[in-house]
Simulated scan of single mutants.
Amino acid sequence: MTAPHPRTRPKGWGGVGAMATACVLALVFALVLTCTGSQGRSPAKTTGESVSHAERAQADEECTAPEKQTLAPSAADGPTIAAIKSRRGEKRKLIVGVDQNSYRWGYRDPNSGESGRLEGFDIDLVHRIAEDILGDRDAVQFKAIPTDQRIPAIQAGRVDMVVRTMTINCARIRDVAFSAPYFKTGQQVLAPKSSPVTGYDASLADREICTAAGSTAYSTLEADRKTGRLPESADIGTTVPNQLDCLVRLQLGEVDAVVTDGALAASQAAQDPTVELKGAAFTTEYYGVAMKKDADDLVRRVNRILVDFRGDTAGGWESSYASWLSATLGRDSAASKPPAPQYLRTS
């Protein structure tokens, strides 16, 4: 039996004050949230309550390469796009669920001097989609959505799509449709530089780990603890509505480590120099644009836009990466580029 590790809680971290200021400013500029996520000891259930565990287990076994389960690109309009275009006046906008607290992905820069402006890699992609569909890159209504409310917001029709560092996986493609991947990443551990945690390994025994409710990080930890890949004594009960809340808890010494996508973790490490990534990524994941299951024309259109976005060397994927992510992920973008898309879904 492994003896419990003594809690190592760094004191007087310089990042706390800066982050507190950033959070206050974010609240000042905040969008009206479409839903309020719950913060507790277990993640909220999102969808599919009527589906049995056996049916879901069978579906997961049959699911392979979820990032390829999308429709072929098309520039044609259909009923979903027609409905978006039929909106009149100030309502003629693309309604998109985003994050406003993920540094360099979807966030409000408190030093930008422009009230209400969202910035980041995901935001660039949203503007590109709006420009293609509505002819105006600024014809967007942004809605800030907690991690565990992304799928419910799509299913309830509160948003046309979600562009929010959302991993394509087998569980989610049962509930929403995804575009082809637009970014490659993997789960990683974030902890204080002074921490004895070394990565996704035995050093997490008896440690408190924070994840966002409804995230792939939590489901991965839950599965790995059952199989023994993660020490059974690791405490994964701390979940929060938004990933940034995990960083704050880490800064306050309330948890020992955070597990999230490496692309997000790198941005959080850039926000606070007292924390760092520990060990290599231990999964491979892909971000996609999520939409309603029956919005076939919109899925095809977004896939067409992504082809152009990836191929545009002047103002597309590469330019956006250089602007927002090169400082945290490195100048060489090769590791973050998704593979050539495959469109295996036929209906």
Rank of each mutant, 00 (worst) to 15 (best):
A44S: 07
T165M: 04
N101W: 09
Q69S: 09
S38T: 03
T198G: 04
Q268P: 01
T80G: 04
C63A: 10
S326V: 08
L27I: 14
N101R: 08
R9H: 00
E208G: 09
A130V: 00
T283C: 10
A270E: 09
P241K: 00
S194E: 04
C63W: 03
T80N: 11
N111V: 07
N169Y: 06
R345Q: 15
A171I: 10
Q155G: 02
L71E: 01
V32T: 15
M161K: 02
A54Q: 09
G214W: 14
Q251T: 15
L252P: 12
D206R: 11
V176R: 10
V275K: 01
S215A: 15
D160Q: 02
A171E: 14
T313M: 11
E208C: 09
L125D: 07
A59E: 07
T346F: 11
P241Y: 06
P73C: 15
S102E: 15
R117L: 10
V240H: 03
P339D: 03
S203R: 09
K93S: 14
R345D: 13
C170M: 04
E49P: 01
L329Q: 13
P146S: 09
K91N: 05
A314E: 14
A75T: 10
M1I: 11
V28E: 12
R108H: 13
Q155M: 02
R345G: 12
L230T: 13
R87P: 06
A177Q: 06
K184E: 06
I173V: 13
D136E: 03
D296K: 12
L25S: 01
W324A: 11
A202H: 00
R310W: 09
V248Y: 05
S42P: 04
L252A: 14
A234K: 05
L134K: 00
D201P: 09
T21F: 15
T227F: 09
G316F: 08
A180K: 11
T8H: 03
R56L: 05
S323E: 13
R300A: 14
S102D: 08
T313P: 01
L329C: 06
S52F: 12
R207Y: 05
A281E: 08
K143C: 01
T64Q: 11
W317C: 08
